[in-house]
Amino acid sequence: MKRNRRKETPQIETNSLKFERCVLCGKQTHIPISTPIAARQGYIEGTGQLCPTCYKRIKNV
């Protein structure tokens, strides 16, 4: 049985929607946790969800 090893990060609940947090800086993202990974902006497989600022920083390195 394969286990999901993705680091769990706290989510924020706003108006009954929960949003992901950036795995690097901890800021709330605009991505609801119910959004499929394939449809997310700033998601890096094996790392997790990033905010736009951290995603740009990582991609430009």
Rank of each mutant, 00 (worst) to 15 (best):
G48E: 06
N60C: 05
C51M: 08
V61E: 08
I33S: 02
P10M: 10
Q28S: 09
Y55I: 08
T47K: 14
T47L: 15
E8Q: 02
M1W: 04
I58Y: 12
P36M: 04
V61K: 11
V23D: 03
E8F: 06
P32F: 00
L50P: 08
C22M: 08
E20S: 13
V23K: 12
C22T: 10
H30W: 04
T53L: 13
G46M: 02
I58L: 14
T47G: 03
V23R: 08
A38E: 14
L24C: 13
S16G: 04
K27P: 00
G42S: 11
R57Q: 08
Q49M: 14
T9R: 06
E8D: 08
P52V: 13
K7D: 09
L24T: 01
R6F: 05
K27D: 14
E20T: 09
Y43S: 07
T14Y: 07
I12W: 10
R3A: 07
T14K: 11
F19N: 00
I33G: 00
T47H: 05
H30I: 11
N15D: 10
T53H: 06
I12Y: 10
V61W: 09
R40F: 03
P52M: 01
K18G: 00
R57M: 12
F19I: 01
I37C: 01
V23M: 02
P32D: 01
G48Y: 04
Y55C: 15
V61Q: 13
I44P: 01
T14N: 02
S34E: 06
K56I: 06
C54T: 04
A39C: 03
E8A: 06
R6L: 04
Q41F: 14
Q49A: 08
K59D: 10
I33K: 00
Q49E: 05
A38G: 07
Q28G: 02
P10R: 05
R21T: 15
M1C: 03
T9D: 03
P32E: 05
T9F: 13
H30M: 13
I58V: 15
N4P: 02
I31D: 01
Y43D: 05
R5M: 12
S34L: 10
P32N: 00
Q49S: 13
L50H: 09
G26E: 05
L24F: 13
